[in-house]
Design a binder for these strands. Structure first.
Length: 559
RNA sequence: GCGCCCGUAGCUCAGGGGAUAGAGUGAUGGCCUCCGAAGCCAUAGGUCGCGCGUUCGAUUCGCGCCGGGCGCGCCA
């Protein structure tokens, strides 16, 4: 059932309300979907909400509203439930139309141009090149990619960007760690840095460095460059395995070389938002809601991480991105205030400044990874890891992506490695994909039976015009209703930057299809009923395709 | 101690003012001479952490507790 039907019913009730209570603004009419089908397709609580203001009994008011409803060919029945709800049931024809819409719009069904092509930058992953990507980065990547797709589906022009923290203390640490391992290999006395990286991959990089024709590792800069290049290449492979692509990569180091860090600091000083104390330069972040002021230039002359971060976000704005979305682990949520404060401070003299809520953040909780019934602590420095690649090798890209997206971002959740590995067949992604494959199979069977082998698949042409009137069974009506909700779900998921809503929707749609499939035969002998059912199947398949592709999950014809 | 987030079925999680609170998984019992059983149907499982408010109506909103996570660096 389409949004069209809902707005039509809202209009009917609005007109009824205007008759019954002319002094009340009709915008008070809202419709909701009852959980139980016996309560109709929509219910309206307006009578209960207005009863007090009108000093009326809610039930009487509801009865009057129903009596005042204008005639409509879509509305089958309107009745008042005991407590004052007005329950509306629409005629099957109102629901059936959605199939025609879907078959006509195909992969555009559910999409909207409401954002009008405005630009938005989605920054995600942004992992430091100091180690392989772990499951947390996987969650980040899946979220960022899907959120980008949801934004695109509402008409945003999306740029996906990866920010590399390739400058600063952590990188130096990485270089020193690799250098120490090189010296060990060569039997040179070596001291491992106190907060160095212990992962095995550091040893591997050291070996590679030597194999690459280097006799020793005394050139720290060369070693560091080599290590960063290696890790970036590895991370790219991880992202490829996940099926995530970026439109651009932004290097933190470039902010230093092109003077933007300097310029940003100067802007903050000029704005009167900085002060010297204890040999360091501080930013008055408390003027922007922080609980203490923060150091931006340490007494050793180097900058803390959030200074280049501010410079970076200024470039986003200057590059024309009036909207920016960042995907970030909630362990970094303290940066939100600092970056926003820095942006406000640096641009406080501008006539038209950057909005206070810029950039937007999607903060996700870290996963607890369970293996062998025990919690695995993820620590980059200690080198204990569950990498994205391991996970994909075990469970497959589709299962990993679907699973990582199946919880809302700000909920912690437990990722049981053993479950993902040993029971990958029970992953819900197969449930949804299976519905898709089943439909393909039925359509193929029909194509074969109708003697069209060898020709281009003709189903769409043959079914687009099918008479839909036979679709009147309870399960069919439920499916039709669900199909019509798709656009609304997408809109909501985008508005809340919450892809899991789409995941749950697809599971429900697939579930309703499986029930239908088990209860009714599609390829019945009566042609009109068969065509109608095939058209419904085709519509379901289309919506499954559209939804899965937004999540970056494949839609196999056979499994 | 302060800030942000989270407490919903045995477990993993949806729902976020509306009627009898849902799904997956696990348990039990059914369904393939018939389009794919990676599926379906049925049964079982709940003081929605606790208390007080707001409301016609609170699992949902507000406040206070209790329990858990993260943050509170001249680390990122």
């Amino acid at each position: 059932m389409s949004a069209e039907v809902k707005s039509h019913l809202t209009e009917l009730l609005t007109r009824a309300l205007a008759k019954v209570a002319p002094q009340q603004p009709g915008s008070l009419i809202s419709l909701e979907r009852p959980k139980q089908s016996q309560h109709g397709d929509f219910s309206c609580p307006a009578a209960m909400q207005l009863a007090r203001a009108l000093k009326r009994n809610p039930r009487e008011l509801a009865l009057e509203l129903v009596a005042a409803l204008p005639p409509s060919e879509w509305l089958e029945r309107a009745e008042v439930a005991g407590n004052g709800f007005i329950n509306l049931r629409v005629r099957p024809a109102a629901k059936q139309h959605i199939v025609r819409t879907i078959l006509a719009e195909t992969d555009r069904y559910g999409r909207s141009e409401s954002a009008g092509g405005k630009p938005v930058i989605v920054e995600f992953v942004s992992a430091n090149p100091t180690g392989p990507l772990h499951v947390g980065h996987g969650r980040n990547a899946a979220l960022g990619d899907a959120i980008g797709a949801l934004l695109q589906a509402q008409g945003w022009r999306v740029t996906r960007e990866f920010y590399y923290n390739d400058a600063g203390a952590q990188i130096r640490n990485l270089g020193l760690s690799v250098q120490a391992r090189i010296r060990e290999k060569l039997g040179v006395p070596a001291e491992f840095p106190a907060d160095g990286y212990h992962g095995n991959y550091v040893r591997e990089i050291a070996e590679k460095y030597l194999r690459a024709g280097n006799a020793e590792g005394e050139d720290l800069e060369a070693v560091t460059r080599f290590a960063v290049a290696e890790l970036r290449r590895e991370q790219d492979l991880d992202l490829q395995a996940l099926g995530v692509r970026f439109d651009s990569y932004f290097l933190e180091s470039s902010l230093y070389t092109d003077g933007r860090v300097q310029k940003t600091v100067q802007a903050l000083i000029d704005a009167g938002k900085a002060f010297e104390q204890d040999g360091a330069l501080w930013l008055k972040t408390t003027e922007y809601g922080d609980d203490k002021d923060r150091v931006m230039r340490k007494s050793d002359g180097t900058y803390t991480y959030f200074v280049p971060d501010i410079a970076y976000h200024l470039t986003k704005w200057e590059r024309g991105f009036t909207r920016a979305v960042n995907i970030q682990g909630s362990d970094h949520h303290s940066t939100v205030t600092r970056v926003r404060a820095g942006l406000q401070a640096a641009t406080s003299k501008w006539q038209r400044g950057i909005p206070q809520g810029y950039p937007e953040y999607v903060l996700y909780k870290m996963l607890t990874v369970m293996k062998g019934g025990e919690e695995m602590k993820i620590s980059k420095r200690a080198g204990s890891y569950v990498t994205v690649r391991e996970l994909i090798d075990e469970a497959g890209r589709d299962a990993v992506r679907f699973f990582l997206l199946s919880r809302k971002a700000d909920a912690e959740f437990v990722f049981d490695i053993d479950l993902a590995k040993s029971q990958s067949e029970e992953n819900p992604v197969y449930y949804v994909q299976y519905a898709h494959a089943r439909i393909c199979s039925v359509l193929e069977q029909w194509r074969t039976q109708s003697g069209d082998q060898g020709r281009a698949f003709p189903v769409a042409g043959a079914l687009n015009a099918a008479d839909l009137a036979p679709l009147s069974g309870a399960r069919e009506l439920a499916l039709l209703q669900r199909l019509g909700e798709y656009a609304e779900i997408l809109e909501n998921a985008e508005a809340e930057l919450a892809p899991h809503q789409l995941v749950f929707y697809l599971r429900e749609l697939a579930g309703e299809f499986h029930s239908y499939y088990n209860a009714e035969r599609i390829l019945v002998s009566e042609a009109p009923l068969r065509s109608a059912r095939l058209a419904l199947c085709l519509a379901v398949r289309q919506v499954l395709r559209n939804g899965l592709s937004l999540l970056g999950v494949s839609q196999p014809d056979k499994m």
